[in-house]
Amino acid sequence: MLVRRTEPPASAAVTITVDGRDVRARKGESVAAAVLAAGIVPTRLAPVSGAPRAPYCLMGSCYECLMTVDDRANVQACMTPVKDGMRVRTHASRPSLRHG
């Protein structure tokens, strides 16, 4: 997947949570990039077979990076810039109508 060449300096870093876990991200980068850099895969299960998936094109074409961002489901994570305190949930488990 992807690894950081250099850690962003504190002034250029924000923290988001991904599936409840703190993830440091670089200001201005996308949620998908931050999730990939944190080594979190899969981020989604294919709806037909349940096969594992992860962000693929990072430019809004493939819709492979859909995640829940601040309680909005099916957001394109590669088109969403990170913000401090953002809560991200991957779609790596089957959806449920249960709360929480």
Partner: peptide, 21 residues
Amino acid sequence: PGVMTLGAAQIALKTSDLVPE
């Protein structure tokens, strides 16, 4: 997971200073 487009890697490098593992 682990397969990406070349363009994705380029975007990750430009925006996030990320390189492929």
